[in-house]
């Protein structure tokens, strides 16, 4: 896993370098300072950091052979990762509505490639976490309650995306019904799932979960760099550039 993470360092290092090479090179808008919403991204960054905390608590519990607690924190990590993906879907949708696509300018191309690949990595991580939650789940009914919790979380996500108009053909009432139904299913499944006493020896899975955790934390540290370089620094730096280009266009016209 460490070798793989080393190769991933070079992969994301190249993508971030490419973003920086083409920074402030766009001749047409939208420019970063016009479109990037730093407060929302700060919240999503916080969510991803807290998912890393949940991940390390999950590993800690599994190493202590605490099956239910470990499974709870794994699912919490997956949920926080899914919320982060929801933020990213919302952001991409907003950018598309504002006219920023991968083909409109260099900022759009480099931004979507970089953050898109990161989002893909988070998606893989969420799937991996759900598999690990299944691995340390006792056989039988408990697996079905786990499935219920996942479906409930999915319904909540669909509802939230509907309310945010990312899913356009879902009315507000329909979105609220999705959220409410998803919450009921998730809470019921969760109560049933975690009430089952288990004597499963989950400590034997600590090594496998450690590998999953390494991947998840790596995805987190990549976002720490992206948040600083792409959002905070670039949005701050591009203000003068975009103003110069816009004033030049007005002067020329």
């Amino acid at each position: 896993m460490w070798t793989f993470l080393g190769s991933e360092c070079m992969f994301f290092g190249s993508l971030i370098a490419t973003f920086l090479v083409y920074r402030n090179q766009s001749t047409t808008g939208p420019f970063p300072d016009e479109i990037i919403d730093v407060p929302i991204t700060t919240v999503s960054t916080f969510v991803l950091l807290m998912s890393s905390l949940a991940m390390v608590l999950a590993l800690n519990a599994v190493q202590r052979n605490q099956a239910n607690l470990g499974r709870f924190w794994i699912l919490m990590t997956a949920l926080l990762g899914t919320i982060f993906l929801g933020f990213q879907a919302f952001e991409f949708n907003e950018f598309f509505n504002e006219g920023l696509t991968p083909r409109v300018n260099l900022f759009g191309t480099t931004f979507f490639v970089l953050t898109g690949f990161h989002g893909a990595h988070v998606t893989v991580g969420v799937i991996w976490l759900l598999v690990m939650a299944g691995v340390i789940t006792p056989k039988g009914l408990s697996a079905w309650t786990l499935l219920g919790a996942v479906l409930g979380a999915y319904a909540i996500l669909v509802g939230i995306l509907g309310l945010l108009d990312v899913i356009r053909n879902l009315s507000d009432v329909g979105a609220v019904i999705f959220i409410a139904a998803g919450a009921v299913v998730m809470v019921a499944a969760g109560l049933k799932h975690f009430s089952i006493p288990t004597k499963l020896n989950v400590a034997s899975q600590a090594g496998n979960l450690e590998v999953t955790a390494l991947y998840w934390h790596f995805v987190d540290i990549v976002w720490i760099v992206i948040f600083t370089v792409v959002y905070l620094v670039s949005a701050n730096d591009s203000i003068e550039t975009s103003e110069a280009i816009i004033s030049g266009l007005h002067g020329g016209g």
Binding site: L5, G6, C9, I16, V21
Partner: peptide
């Protein structure tokens, strides 16, 4: 593992700086 990751990390930093 620490040495392996550190080596790859610094190689990535090198590629990053060389590109810039």
């Amino acid at each position: 593992f620490a040495k392996l990751f550190a080596a790859a990390f610094f190689l990535a930093i090198g590629i990053f700086l060389a590109t810039l």
